[in-house]
Amino acid sequence: MKIIVHREKCQGHARCWAMAPDIFELDDEGYIMPGDIDVPEEQERLAWMGAKSCPERALDIQK
């Protein structure tokens, strides 16, 4: 599973980070770090919850 990060849409809500701080990393301003995220199998549910929590829809899930 991969999370596609549309960084230009990130507005720093940090809901993904609140759900899964080990998967979604933030910069010093509190916005998501650039780059798509490869998710290990055991973390898929957490990553899914984090991606689904984004109010801006900046995170897409790719199976």
Binding site: A18, L26, D28, E29, G30, Y31
Partner: peptide
Amino acid sequence: FRSLLNPLLSPK
């Protein structure tokens, strides 16, 4: 301005 202020109120 957001870049100036964001770190002051970031989640961390």
